[in-house]
Design a protein around this nucleic acid. Structure first.
Lengths: 138, 138
DNA sequence: CTCTAAGGTCTCTATGTGAGACCTGCCCTC
DNA sequence: GAGGGCAGGTCTCACATAGAGACCTTAGAG
């Protein structure tokens, strides 16, 4: 818990820069959220966690991502050094994506989030049902 | 690390249900990501971590969110039981948002992500510059 | 000769997001 | 008593992003 507190405190220091400051906030949390906080990044990193995979394997694993977004998200993750891309000169060429060490290092914090999701999912679902029920009554 | 491994394994069990299955995947990770994986949710939860805050305080703390999205994201977080909303009958009425116990429980996993963001941000930035430089050469 | 497969790109449309005007009630000042 | 401000929103419009699905290239199988 004290770990949580210190992280939160650090975060709020970034937040608290005065509104006068001309330069926009430069909060690493914001930057990283912008990167991995999109719809597919975390899912892709998680999927690559077990083993390197090829484009179409990934597409099969995450059936509801479009090729377009798969390409783009992989490119962005590569750009940020979280995954690496290897082209094998087979015919037709095959491309393998795998986590870089930096990407690997993301697994542990992500795991704790997944843990939370697993344990708390039922609570969230219950709250949602309750909320919608209350709306319906009103 | 073993914690990470077990979470990843659990995650991949959800992924591996066969494509034949008519019912869509029902992976808690997906559901929770859909919820807190949007642009503003994590930021709001983090901002409320230090203390309960009112609508316009939140708006000032996160200057680049529109009122529209602030309202909507708060509503969704409330719906999922992560925050609570109290209206005080002052004139004009003021509304306070604060983390529920469920929301509090999210802080610890989130803190580890923030920790990661803080420590690794410079690596990501470096990778990005390298990638863009390579593009420019080509 | 056609079909499939890999790893994409391209175009078109649907959905999400942001800016900013507006609303309601009350208090304050002029 | 007319106007202005604040609180917490809602509404509309315009634009950016995401998804669906056609298409491309090369090569091997039937």
């Amino acid at each position: 818990m004290s770990a949580a507190l210190s992280a939160i405190e650090r975060f709020s220091r970034y937040q608290s820069d005065d509104a006068q400051s001309v330069r926009p906030v430069h909060c690493p949390v914001r930057e990283v959220l912008d990167r991995i906080g999109d719809k597919w990044s975390i899912l892709l990193v998680m999927t690559l966690a077990t083993r390197p995979q090829r484009f179409s394997e990934l597409h099969r694993a995450i059936r509801d991502i479009s090729k377009r977004m798969l390409t783009q998200t992989l490119r962005d993750l590569e750009r940020d050094g979280l995954i690496t891309r290897h082209v094998f000169p087979t015919k037709p060429p095959s491309v393998e994506y795998c986590l870089s060490p930096l990407g690997q290092s993301l697994l542990e914090p992500m795991a704790s989030l997944i843990d939370w999701a697993d344990r708390r999912y039922s609570d969230i679902h219950a709250a949602r049902v309750r909320f919608d029920g209350a709306l319906c009554d009103a």
